[in-house]
Design a protein around this nucleic acid. Sequence first.
RNA 1: GCGCCCGUAGCUCAGAUGGAUAGAGCGGUGGACUUCUAAUCCACUGGUCGGGGGUUCGAAUCCCUCCGGGCGUGCCA
Length: 612
Amino acid sequence: MARGKRAAIEGPAQPMQIDPGFHPEIRYRGRAMRIERYLDQLASAAIRETTGQTSSPLLRPTTDPRHGDYQLNAAMALAKALGKKPREIAEPLAAKLAEHPAIARAEVAGPGFVNLHLDDTWLGERLTEAARDAERCGIPLVDTPEKIVVDFSSPNIAKQMHVGHLRSTIIGDALCRLLRAIGHEVIGDNHLGDWGTQYGLLLVGMREFGSLDALDEQPIEELERVYKLASARAKDDEDFAERARTELAKLQSGDAENMALWKKFVDTTRRELERTYERMGIHFDEWLGESAYNDMLPGVVERLLAAGLAREDQGAVGVFWQELEGAPAKLAKQKEPFLVRKRDGAFLYSTTDIAAVLYRKDRWHADRSLYVVDARQGLHFQQLFAVAQLLGVEMQLEHISFGTVLDEAGKPLKTRDGKAVTLASLLDEAERRAEARIREGIAEKKLHIDEQDVPTVARAVGIGAVKYADLRQNRSSDYQFDWDKLVSFNGNAGPYLQYAYARVASIFAKGGEDLDAAVGPIVLREPPEERLGRVLARFGEVVHQAAESYLPHLLTDHLYDLAKSFMSFYEALPVLKAEGDVRASRLALAALTARQMRRGLDLLGIEVLERM
RNA sequence: GCGCCCGUAGCUCAGAUGGAUAGAGCGGUGGACUUCUAAUCCACUGGUCGGGGGUUCGAAUCCCUCCGGGCGUGCCA
């Protein structure tokens, strides 16, 4: 049963015609569903017309469906400035908006809220358009595309990736996908830790007790083994430590022999890292590690000195905020210098990061550079960004910080013997648990998976569950890792969404229907359809919000809403057994759901399965 | 000391630029499978939003203060 008024228009949706006297500049851009922005523009125009004011309508989705779909809070805000009662402002505003075909009803309520009820006919037409946009899936492009560098994952050479890299890798990858989806040009850059003091120890250690064969076969294990031995030795053998420093200096000045061995460390490790990334479906556009900026480092320090931003102190060179004009007050107060050259002449990661900022600006002409890095490095990035600003680099810099991964007891996730859990072992465990759950489901005849597909499904479900668990939480807080929740098939978890997708897909498989051919027209008749339709209509908007606020959990929450709404619809109303227009409409709703689920999960780096 | 983050239902968490009776999931209780996948769906249950002040027509949200927890802090990254 459709709410509100319904125009007589049926059949294929037309690009909507808008009364030019009302808002000549606003066009609903065909298939690009960004409904909130559209309503916002509509309401702004209505405010201008009824009050002469240019002000935000303060459009918000309602929290209670009885208040309609969206509410405007502007009347209360405008009351003081206009010297009127809020309701006196709200009444004409509501009347104006009610004239528009998108709005079924606009009611004034409470102190001066304007509650907007979307028109189901209008909404059905917009959904029909979205159903016919298989390519973009209703996600509009940004007006001004930017070039954005996303610096993420960034493991160290010669060390296993561990849970500490998990979040950066998963969140960074999702942000790349999201920003690309709304039309930005994205460079995903793996800023490897492939340069620095540990290489002196590794060079000497490798020659002393390393094996080149082992390095080829199990590079990371061998490098970790050698490093452990070498650093232990260096502690009580001053001669050994001195040789390590000498070899490091030779490496940094380009000694051919050391360079060759170092290169071998990097290449072999990279091959091993790529296997893990492949397993996770992660791709980088660039692998510019710290070593890539080596040649720039002396110049960076000189430039800072010349600009009067840095000075020498106790043999080291750094930026001393409390002495600097135009420095952020907080940095000055903290009195922590930003060191860029050590007493022994070596450079630090601060120096490398400044070089990378300059490189990204000068060589790539990036508009934005995002650093998907642990929250504990917050101070470093504050300092880095302040230096960049003082150097006059015009590029938006953002630290996309995230919290620590904790175990069930709320402590940082470690193995029993206190070591960091490696990423590989975590993924193994996820797949193992997923497989166990899947076999249970098959035994109970609740899942429909052929034996030969079990490993594939277990992989997609296991990896997907890990990613979803990470992405669904607001990045800034620490997150508690819980295996049972992770692989659970119900509730807000990855497998539930994959299951929901498989259920939609099975409608088409069962009915022999082509998903791409199911294009409606969509007409919202029953309450479950109206609810599903309203969720479907928000997709483009949510993708934009998630991308531009760097909050993937906005999308996971939305996809969960979508899955729930679809499940309710699916349980309540027949699709294949419906007839005529109703069947066509419901098939199109299902097809649009499937596409948004697939696309949405893809933007999070999560695979879907046609059958499970 | 200085700085950053956090404190919301029994548990895990959402609550963007302040908006109506603070929402999910898990858990608990009760229902729904001869009908498109029941690992699903429906209903119910559950809160001094850490405490106290302040700003506002309106505060979980902004400001101050206190309490509790985590993290960072001169030559690691």
